[in-house]
């Protein structure tokens, strides 16, 4: 067997005849930052949701940390060590920032004191410590995005799935988030799989990139190779980045 943390093998998903994800395979090594990019409707979010267990794949296999997870429930997958964010942020609005993160922290530590310690550490990492007693519903969008990451991180995942955490952020906020994610990856060694539209963030973060188009893979490799790939330029980057 491979030493990969996440192995996706020939995974497909169809919605009423439309093939959203078409026999996709890739591997993510421990400690790596791996990005999935592609135009809207390329099947990124569908792929993401299959890994997180929210939707079942029609074919193929997904292995995480040595176990098959393609038939497991989202909460079991979280328990195995996959933390995720939502593209449209879903904080618990009536709870304080701290309590939001506590829910995540309590997945591994059954004692409140220990969970609170994790919570505070994570909140410091994400620059939210000073706002820990604010209600989540009162936060600004950049803060909510970081809260989303903090909550997932508090579950102490081996793999962090980030679904467009940069979307809607201003460039300075994007840089701040990139810095934070790099720091988290460096210090705790958590593996990151991100779906992203903001190429500037992808280029700064990812060690490898998978490019999807109409559910199929059109390129995979290091960032510098991928952005020079003619297929990628015509189908995706041509319109947006160049």
């Amino acid at each position: 067997m491979t030493t990969a943390l996440l192995t996706v093998t020939d995974v497909s998903k169809r919605f009423r005849g439309l093939t959203a994800v078409d026999r996709i395979s890739f591997e993510v090594a421990p400690g790596e930052i791996f990005a999935v990019i592609g135009p809207n409707g390329a099947g990124k979010t569908t792929l993401f949701n299959m890994i997180a267990g929210v939707i079942a794949c029609d074919e193929g296999a997904i292995s995480f940390d040595g176990a098959r997870i393609e038939r497991e429930r989202p909460d079991r997958i979280a328990w195995r060590g996959v933390g995720r964010t939502f593209q449209i942020v879903r904080p618990f609005p009536a709870l304080s920032v701290e309590d939001n993160v506590m829910v995540g922290a309590l997945l591994r530590s059954h004692h409140l004191d220990a969970a609170l310690e994790i919570t505070h550490a994570v909140l410091r990492q994400l620059d939210l410590f000073d706002k820990r007693l604010h209600l989540a519903s009162t936060l600004t969008l950049p803060d909510r995005k970081r809260l989303e990451v903090a909550r997932a991180l508090a579950t102490q995942p081996k793999l962090l799935l980030l679904d467009e955490v940069m979307a809607g952020l201003r460039p300075t906020e994007t840089d701040r988030m990139v810095g934070i994610l790099k720091e988290i990856n460096r210090t705790s060694g958590v593996t990151i799989l991100l779906i992203e539209h903001v190429m500037r963030a992808v280029m700064a973060l990812a060690s490898r990139i998978l490019v999807l188009h109409h559910g199929a893979r059109i390129a995979e490799g290091a960032p510098n190779e991928v952005v020079r790939d003619p297929a990628v330029i015509t189908s995706y980057l041509g319109a947006e980045a160049l």
Binding site: A52, V54, R73, P74, D75, A78, W79, G83, R84, F86, R90, P91, F92, P93, A94, L95, D99, M102, V103, G104, L106, L107, R151, A152, T155
Partner: peptide, 18 residues
């Protein structure tokens, strides 16, 4: 904590292992 998470957003709660 799990209860209030379920009350606020059950899908987000599930993603946190609840």
């Amino acid at each position: 904590y799990q209860w209030v998470a379920v009350r606020e957003d059950s899908e987000a709660a599930r993603a946190l292992g609840v």
